[in-house]
Design a protein around this nucleic acid. Structure first.
Lengths: 323, 323
DNA sequence: CTGTTAGCGCTTTCAG
DNA sequence: CTGAAAGCGCTAACAG
């Protein structure tokens, strides 16, 4: 607690230089004698000096904080956990703190946080908090496009769903799939819309299921699906896959009688019996890219990331024909 | 972005008072004419004034930020998601930001965040990051006790496992259980230790399974369990329950032939077939209490929370004898 | 190449 | 009950 008492002046005094020199030496700014810089660094280290974030932020007119919005519906979906962790890590590496923004409708309190930027993953047009967040005087980075009217994010991180879906379908076909049933998410988010577009091909039949699926609805959907006698099922909503597989009647074996795949990969899918083929959407990378885009929007000179996040197909037992 | 240009002096000028008065009026400090206060408030609101967090933090010698450590092994466990959200919400309500601390071994960078306090849920004695976090000059609040030597948290939020287990066992017995097999978590955390202690009763047999369970190990454990012919299984590790139930041989029906319960409740357990009895450990409340304890440690005058977090038994199909 | 100085916006004595 | 002024610790102009 008392550790914070050491200021830049203490270091300056101890090193026999001015505060400017200390500041420059530690931040790598300015052109100065390399040995002075090293000496200052050593002194600072030795004294246990840690620059005050508050003072720096005040001086620089920022808060050093990036917010990540975590809507209620994201609870239970590992995707968001990984995304936030990836974002937190990247932010920390750049000296920024990643702050969790729970659903919160008091705009004043959100403004008081004085975020430098805001990250939102897959915003829903139905989310009542989103308009409040959009109203904050802060650059917003979305992962997946924001479909709302007048949405105007500073940057959008796009995931390459078109390619992911193509690869996954190609794989299923290679294992003999001819009629693929796809359980699809709602269209109130960029993810949902893009996914449906990608799935609009002749041998795929779409079946609506909610994002926050309810067992009875899912049961219903599965009945419909099975009635149409597909030879492969692609279960898109994150988290629904295990349950959907459980809902298959006992006589329908996976993968012998029915190929099965999920879309969003999750550790549980690798552990399921049989293990479930899915697409690793690289959420941690997505989060990291979102932070970088945010920092770019704040004027930092960082290399531009890839245009689209590349995904990885994880082929597992549920879609592999045994010989 | 330009919104932040309005300072306390602008408000003071507009309201025809001094900056002190504005500060006092908005923070509710000082004894002043109520109508002056109201006028100042109105002016501030009208100008869209938002106090600069950086300036306030600098003045007050704090950062306005509480960190929550999210170890790797927590990914995929809803418990931590709820805990962090509860904490974030409580923090936001008190004007603090909750920052995610990913596993990170650079102490300097962590120190640079200049956290006011740190929250850790169920610290493991095997976690290499914990010593670094303990070394931070910051009060630490743990949820569950920290078992490590020399650990000295500012506060500990305790969950009432003894009572939870007692209630759960009583329920199982009331449904006819006489020999209960309990799959228990490792003892490197306070949770694991306390749980085992609570389960040390004659009609309960303990079976070790890891926290981050592996399917093969779990299969192995289940074989052992079944060989001992229990009439009820209590699966403690968060997330393992659904898988454990799947591993029961087909002829063992739940709940007819075997009662089944989990410990840490999770939305998936309510959706499983059959739905699984479990204990709602109130993670969001735990997170909120942790934040309050942290703020108390920082000198804020908040009411002391309950000595132990009270839990709720959620009885579902898997442990209900049908008639 | 380094030092002095001003000031970011707030809260808090201390006078009036 | 209200105002003036100092100063939290830092960085960016500007001098030297």
């Amino acid at each position: 607690m008392a550790a914070q008492r050491i200021t830049i002046r203490d270091v300056a005094r101890a090193a026999g230089v001015s505060t400017t020199t200390v500041s420059d030496a530690l931040s790598g700014r300015g052109r100065m004698n390399e040995e002075t810089r090293e000496r200052v660094r050593a002194t600072a280290e030795q004294l246990g000096y840690v620059a005050s974030a508050a003072a720096r932020n005040l001086r620089l007119g920022r808060s050093g904080t990036i917010g990540v919005y975590l809507p209620n519906q994201t609870v239970g979906y590992d995707y968001y956990t990984y995304l936030s962790r990836g974002a937190a890590q990247e932010a920390l590496g750049h000296g920024y703190a990643l702050t969790m923004i729970p659903p919160w409708d008091d705009a004043a309190q959100l403004r008081a946080l004085h975020l430098d930027a805001l990250i939102v993953s897959d915003p829903s047009t139905n989310d009542p908090v989103m308009p409040i967040l959009r109203g904050l005087p802060v650059p917003m980075v979305t992962c997946e496009p924001d479909l709302a009217d007048g949405a105007d994010p500073a940057a959008v991180i796009r995931i390459d769903h078109a390619r992911s879906v193509r690869n996954l379908l190609r794989h299923l076909r290679s294992q003999g799939a001819r009629r693929i049933a796809a359980l699809t998410p709602p269209t109130d988010t960029g993810f949902g819309v893009e996914l449906r577009e990608s799935l609009a091909v002749p041998d795929v039949e779409l079946y609506d299921v909610g994002f926050a699926f309810v067992p009875d609805e899912l049961t219903e959907s599965m009945h419909q699906v099975l009635a149409d006698r597909p030879d492969a099922i692609l279960c898109t909503p994150d988290g629904a896959a295990a349950m959907a597989m459980d809902l298959l009647p006992g006589q329908v074996r996976v993968p012998e009688d029915m190929l099965f795949a999920a879309y969003t990969d999750t550790p549980g899918l690798a552990l399921a019996r049989p293990s479930v083929t899915a697409v690793d959407l690289q959420p941690a990378l997505t989060g990291a890219l979102a932070v970088r885009a945010a920092l770019r929007a704040l004027g930092q000179d960082l290399p531009r990331g890839p245009r689209r996040v590349a995904t990885e197909l994880r082929v597992r037992e549920s879609s592999t024909r045994r010989r």
